[in-house]
Structures are given as C-alpha cells and as structure tokens.
Computed example of a mutant assay.
Amino acid sequence: MTTYDPVESPTAANLICNTCGTQYPVTDHAQRSTCLICDDPRQYVPPTGQSFTTLRDLTLSPQAYHNDFTPYSEDDRLISIHTVPKFAIGQRAILVRTPSGKNILWDCVTYLDVATVARINNLGGLAAIVISHPHYYSTHSEWSRAFNCPVYTAARDAEWKAITTETDNLLDAQEDEFEIEGVKVLQLGGHFPGSLVMLFDGRLLIADTLLTTPAGVGRWTVDAAGEKRDKPKGLNTFSFMWSIPNWIPLSPDEIVRMWIVLKKHDLRSTHGAFVGQDIEDVCIKQRILESMQIQVQHMGWVDHPFLKEFTVIVPRLNI
C-alpha cells in the first residue's frame, strides 16, 4: 500500500472545477479558464461564472472537508463515501467489498485526504475503480495513484477525459457487458454514450444512468394512520435523462436500448448517485420497466411497441 498526502502530491495545485469537481492537468488559469464538462449541454456553468480550486486548497480549507463512510444498512458489503460539506455535484462513491476480498470503488468523489486513504487501506485497499460517466471522473487519477489501481471508464466517453494516465482502462465500445474483479459492469448508454451501471449480487449501482426520483424513494407502504396500502399507480421510480440539470429527457429508442441490456439480469435493489437513493425491493426490475414505460407514454408515444413489454419477477433469497 502506498503513502499518499494530497498536500504533498505533485498534482496538488492542479486546477479543479468548483461546479463539477473535474481535475485538470494544469496549474495556471491561463492554460485552463473553462471546464469541458460544464460547457457540455448535460452540465452548466453557474450564474457566478467558471471558477477553480485545487486539492491543496480543499484540504487546507476552513470548511474542513472530510469524507463520510456509511455502510448500507441491508448489506455492509456496500459502503457509501461522500464529502461533507457538499462539494461540486455532491455525488457519492460506493466501496464494494467482493467475496474475493478485493475492493472496487464505484464512481469517484473529488475530495481525497490522508484519512480517506487510511480508512480504505484498512479495509483492504482498492483493486479497481469503475466510473459510471464523465460527470464523476473528478480526481480519478489522484485516487488511482493513491491506491495503485486501474481506473475503468467507457471508451465511448473518452473525449470527456480531462486527464489520462497509464492506469486508465477503456471499456470496449462494442461490448455491453464486462467482468471486473468478479463483478459485472453493464454499458447501458443513455445519459452519456458509455454510461455504465454495476451489478453486484443482484444489487444494481446505477449512479444517474437511471435517475432515482422522489417518488421512487417515497414510503408508500403505510398511510398517516399506519394502515398498509399499495403504492398509487402511475408513480415512477426512475427517470431517464440526457441532461439532468437542464431537464432534457432521453428518447424512447434510447430507453429501449438500455432495457435490452438490463432485462437479462435479476435484481433486488438499486443504489443511486446520492446518499439516501437506495431502494430495496424484489420487484425493482418491474419498477424500472414501469418507469421506462411511464416516460415513453408521457412523451406522447402512446402506441409505442415498448409499452407492451413485460418482465417476470424471479423471487430470490437475500444472501
């Protein structure tokens, strides 16, 4: 295991976008005054304009940034990691503790410090990092160097890489399924051409390839009087967006392509991009399909053949 100190890192002064958290391989604002991620229609530059920080400045900030580690209550093999106070987009990474004893980091957060490295090393370090899409590439090269591990991203999204290193591994644009350290990674596309999800023992780590909705995490099993009830019909669990902050949905054809890859797999839960976006439900695959059909129908495609698609729920025991 390597020793890593972000303040002493040779790239500690590299510019980091304050809005999306992407790190660039330059230290001079004259070399980088804009962010390629935030200038893309799927993201945005805030009203205050483009601004940058550095990992050194974040580490020494009076806001006292740190990363919280939260094991998933239903399965402690999944540990959420998110930065407090919120920085940039505010997504979480998820540490997946595989049966082989090798840990995989799903997605990435910008902030990295000595305490985070020590905590993960005490859990066995990292064998690999897999990142769902370009909005979460963040400081992946710092993480890769700190844990001496490869980073897997989609070849389809290579043009949005701000930094490339010798530890980068691009997943084949022509394939839909991959196995990394015994865990399946599915290339669904949609939000970005190469948007990925990860499948671990029926638990689908979705980032915002499938965007978890407020209705999706709502507690519909009881009413205010404590009486049991069914979830009202017509409520989605997920949305499928090309641009999330700018509210541009995916087309029906793109949604269908995502389903074709996903429909072959049995699921028991989903785990979204942010803390609290965990849904435990043996019928979650049905809810994904229903959400897709709700979106297609409400976009005006009332006769689309996809609306007749159905899936069979296969009961499984929790392990």
Rank of each mutant, 00 (worst) to 15 (best):
T3D: 11
D5N: 14
T11Y: 08
A13D: 14
N14W: 10
C20K: 00
V26K: 03
D28T: 08
H29V: 11
F52V: 04
L55Y: 03
A64N: 15
N67Q: 03
D75E: 08
S80R: 12
I89T: 15
T98W: 09
P99I: 01
P99M: 01
L105S: 03
L112G: 00
T116R: 01
N121S: 15
G124K: 10
G125H: 10
I131E: 02
S132V: 04
S132I: 03
Y137T: 09
Y137W: 10
H140T: 11
S141D: 14
Y152W: 05
D157G: 05
T165V: 11
L170K: 05
L171T: 05
L171S: 06
D172C: 03
A173N: 08
D176A: 12
E177N: 08
V185N: 00
L186M: 03
G189F: 02
P193H: 07
L196K: 06
M198V: 01
L199M: 07
A207L: 00
A207T: 01
A207M: 01
T212W: 05
A215T: 15
V217R: 11
P232L: 12
S243D: 05
I248V: 14
S269R: 00
Q277S: 11
E280D: 09
I284R: 00
Q286N: 10
V314I: 15
